[in-house]
Write a protein that binds this DNA or RNA. Structure first.
Lengths: 338, 338
DNA sequence: AGCAGAAATGAATACGTATACAATAGTAAT
DNA sequence: ATTACTATTGTATACGTATTCATTTCTGCT
């Protein structure tokens, strides 16, 4: 326990196996041109000594880190772990480490630092706001990036998006067809393109039906502890409340549900609520939230693949892949189909 | 965009600043003994060129990676992001990168690989099951580790735990004092010490009151999609159901709530439910789950600090820090205080 | 057996940094 | 001005790997 044994190097293995360091390297990197007998002899020593190549020396020599970064914000929004799970699965299956940055606080500095110091071979940006400088840093460092549900004007990179605007429109259509004409929209910070697009689609849908979103029924707040719950309470206890509320994402919708419940406003009897994202939780019996679902696992998988392909130099033009989102009708709108 | 510019090295900076590479290194690592004028001259070039030291070369030279690993399992359990958020905050504030391994699938191999190849300076293990080999790998590699709510017999390392057994006992006492004598316990995989301890405490509490946990009211399942929801449905629709259910953690409890709701069994009127962990969601109005709350942020913060101290060689004996958990009474037990 | 050519291995080197050691410039005291 | 320092900078080297180039060892064939 106290005997601080030094890590073995390929040179040590070479000495023990009676070969040169170059041969050890060749064996471990799996190039051919090594005699099977030699290979076995080396591998025996490697196994016996539990040797692993030093990742940093490898990275320095090859300028490849085998590490990718994932930038997330608000990791406690349940959609983030869902994305992370799939990304981790894909990257782990391809022998890549995953560095996660939570860019809420000082995270962006850390991200930029890692990118600029060559720590990562590529970065996945997930829907988020305060990462514009980091995107620029990655572009400057000529490191491949992919984004999920996130767009920055004026720069082009591979993207995976869902049909956010169309989804918003679909919610509006649904409301209209069900006779809900006094409708509200609750949104978070407008620095996230997903939220902007969803709202735009919703407004467009209303307008196509000859309606419009009344200013007193439009609410925009920065995401903070209990802000949307309070909003739900306000809406639920107001005399002249809307018949239905559409929300920028599921987490907002759930907080609104909390607020409504807190003031005894019943869903769906007194008011309808619709979310956006289709997080797993939305399907729970105790949540039962109608939502616009996006195939988030597929999107994450796609993003991982695109990034790895680009890192390997297997891609040309940047590309934007669009996934169709889908309205899933549940109890928060009385399970009412159109 | 296409001009693949090479990264600059400290040697390049040295040349541009008219000094030696060693001086550049001295300036950037902040050692004293550099004339202020020289320092400024170098820094000017560094700034102008946007130079950042190569992280891998630094790591190789110093054998310090400035990276810590965090091993999690079931990242979609909401307590995990809560822990990750606090850990990220602490580590980012100390200029350390965070590598996250999701050890559900192939994750453990990846973890072991990273540890053995010297990728990380230390590892935080969060409550989990299939990481025993990884713990051993870290110990073998003499890399500092800290665990949160996790114990492996026979090996000693720094730990942060909450009073899991005592919490379980407290739930039993609560049930008994409220006159609930026909009680059930629903647990997940017993390879997690938290779950084992909570169950043990619950049983102990019952026994102290002269009761015992009936075999037909003890349920143990491996965590899988809808397993606990199905269990909730079974319990809720059985003729001879218990008066109250204690669960190994909040996520299990919530799935049980889902199942109960699905079969129209009302909480708390028909049956009580209690969770364990105190995830944020448990306090939501639409969940309103009585639970044993642990100060998870404090625990995560403590774990991060302990790990960094040990990496810096500032710690002696291994230590176990215990945090008091606390029963938080909510609607799933009718808000009934004792 | 001798030889050409292929196959396998070894020797040498570079990656970019931090640091021990050597060398130089600067300073104060005589 | 000379000495004896100290402060500052430069030179050289090592970290552990992958890879180029040179060298040796095998083959098969005559």
């Amino acid at each position: 326990m106290n005997t601080k044994t030094k890590r073995l190097s390929s040179t040590d293995i070479a000495r023990l196996a009676g070969v040169s360091q170059a041969t050890v390297s060749r064996v471990l990197s799996g190039v051919d041109g090594v005699k099977p007998a030699t290979r076995e002899k080396v591998m025996a020593v490697v196994k016996q000594q539990g040797y692993r190549p030093n990742a940093f020396a490898q990275a320095m020599r090859t300028s490849l880190s085998s590490t990718v970064g994932v930038a997330v914000s608000r990791i406690t929004n349940p959609i983030v772990p869902e994305i992370l799970e799939e990304l981790s699965r894909q990257f782990a299956a391809n022998n890549r480490r995953v560095v996660v940055w939570n860019t809420d606080e000082s995270g962006e500095e850390s991200l930029i630092g890692s990118v600029e110091s060559g720590m990562v071979d590529g970065v996945v940006f997930t829907a988020a706001s305060h990462q514009t400088r980091a995107v620029q840093a990655a572009l400057d460092a000529q490191i491949p990036i992919v984004s999920i549900n996130r767009t920055v004007d004026g720069v082009d990179y591979d993207q995976v998006v869902s049909t956010n605007e169309r989804g918003g429109e679909e919610v509006a259509n649904y409301f209209v067809k069900c006779g809900k004409t006094r409708v509200a929209f609750v949104n978070g910070s407008l620095d996230r393109t997903t939220l902007v697009d969803r709202e735009a689609g919703f407004r467009k849908g209303l307008e196509k039906a000859g309606l419009s979103l009344l200013p007193e029924f439009y609410f925009q707040r920065a995401f903070q502890e209990n802000v949307f719950r309070q909003l739900g309470m306000d809406i639920g206890s107001s005399e002249n409340r809307p018949q239905a509320i559409a929300c920028g994402n599921d987490l907002i919708a759930i907080q609104v549900l909390n607020g409504l419940k807190a003031v005894g406003c019943r869903v769906p009897e007194d008011i309808w609520v619709v979310g956006f994202d289709g997080i797993e939780m939305s399907g729970w019996d105790i949540v039962d939230l109608t939502t616009v679902q996006q195939p988030i696992e597929l999107m994450a998988k796609d993003a991982a693949t695109m990034l790895m392909d680009r890192i390997a130099g297997r891609r040309g033009q940047t590309e934007t892949r669009r996934y169709r989102s889908e309205l899933v009708i549940r109890g928060s709108t009385g399970n009412q189909r159109v």
